[in-house]
Nucleic acid binder design. Structure first.
Lengths: 250, 250
DNA sequence: AGCCATGGTTGATCTACATCAATGCAGCAC
DNA sequence: GTGCTGCATTGATGTAGATCAACCATGGCT
């Protein structure tokens, strides 16, 4: 969730030494106050394609993604769908103080989540204010990401949208692997063309066409349909429409 | 910021008895712990059109809108602009723990804000956890609003976008006046066509055309260009594309 | 009053993306 | 091997909204 211009600073607020990965909910990473969280956590697994929570359902837990990819999606009555959240490992989902989720939470790949019963988590927040403080920071980061996403949806061209999404995923992926984002890098695209289109507010055909166009122009190389090589990350960034210093991280 | 299905519940988490209007930062409204906030607050006024903070500048205060309308806007290098926040009276702006704003904050009308030096506010958050808790709720509400906005930007038609924006403003306006939102109501549109287009990810021409179309279809009546009468709020809601139970509040 | 500035409307035309439709291609069951 | 089934690509055509451009309305100023 961290907004940052370098991979290093992104990395710095994640914990890679434990399954939960995020310091806000990881007892091994931070103060003793968080040790109590360790005692009430539990893990849940979901198969690819499985819906974790339906829009409107009660969500009686909060959770952190350990492995895999999940999405938050809103659906209109006539079936139009817009993704509004992309959860990668270490991302948090759930809202203390709110009963039901206003959108579907779906596992895009096989997913393992580290969960806490909401009630227990809320009590913990009261007794250990550091958890709430950390959660506020994470929520503010997510709000920044959502606003960057709004710029993408409202004003970017299809090509810019695709380039932006690839840059986001490449960056997140690279940060987990501590790779160097300047220069070439390779990653697995964890989304189908359809999921990409729901992220970007496009149709899947347009996504496919623009992917082909970026391939023709040498911005990306598709080792397989899902495995992408970026020969020159800076060239990709030029296609995003963002000013050079940044872009966002979901 | 509150997400709710009725005007009453929206109203319930605002305070209309004091200039700050929002209980999170209003000493007269809630626990004694907040009384200390009263001592460090100060007011600032901005003229219509004035930029309150430039993107990238240091923002050394947090604030609550008392009267008037302000906007958060992101700008791309080539000048494309997308509004990412609309601040109506009682809305909060600023981020404890973050130095600079990533977007322009602009006064759309004359604005009065109730401000707190960021440093002092942060110290207060540490000593009075209730402030942080309240802020977390507000931020989560804003995140919900941002996600609803993403659906609008990514998937709604121009007509649906306009209807949605009018419904949002009408609802917010009605909630301040305790009016009945079912039936007819009148309000002042606090945005120019251009500002509306920046909110909706459209051009101002398209905004103008769709406003005319809604007028032709009897969904709205324009008493003047800026004063709107909604003869039947439910009919307007049908045009938004949202399912009947809601819509969002910025 | 006349003039100008600002914001708003409307028309003609263009184009990026959506839509409809066919084809490709990998993995898997049999 | 054959024939699925689920993604992905590519082509032909349609259209919502952008763009370019003219004109209108209101209000403030001299």
């Amino acid at each position: 969730m961290a907004r940052s211009n370098t991979l290093v600073s992104l990395q710095s607020d994640r914990c890679s030494e434990c399954p939960i990965r995020h310091r806000a909910v990881c007892a091994r990473c931070e103060s003793d106050e968080l040790a109590q969280l360790e005692e009430i956590k539990f893990y849940r697994s979901f198969a690819a394609g499985q819906t974790i929570v339906w829009s409107g359902d009660d969500m009686d837990f909060v959770a952190s993604v350990v492995t895999g990819i999940a999405t938050l999606t809103q659906t209109m009555e006539d079936g139009r769908r817009q993704m509004v959240g992309l959860l990668l490992p270490s991302d948090f989902v759930g809202r203390p103080g709110r009963a039901s989720a206003p959108y579907d939470v779906t596992a895009t790949t096989d997913v393992v989540m580290c969960c806490f019963r909401k009630k227990a988590f809320e009590e913990m927040m009261l007794s250990a204010p550091v958890i709430g403080q950390r959660l506020l920071q994470m929520t503010l980061d997510e709000l920044d990401a959502a606003r960057e996403w709004m710029l993408l949806l409202g004003r970017k061209t299809a090509r810019e949208k695709i380039a932006s999404l690839l840059a986001i995923i490449a960056r997140r992926d690279a940060s987990l692997k501590l790779a160097n984002a300047h220069g070439s890098l390779t990653f697995d695209l964890p989304l189908t063309r359809e999921a990409m289109s729901e992220y970007l507010g496009l149709t899947l055909e347009t996504v496919s066409r623009q992917m082909s166009a970026l391939r023709r122009d040498g911005i990306i190389v598709t080792e397989t349909k899902r495995r992408i090589l970026i020969p020159d990350f800076d060239r990709l960034l030029e296609e995003t429409g963002d000013d050079s210093d940044g872009g966002f991280l979901v």
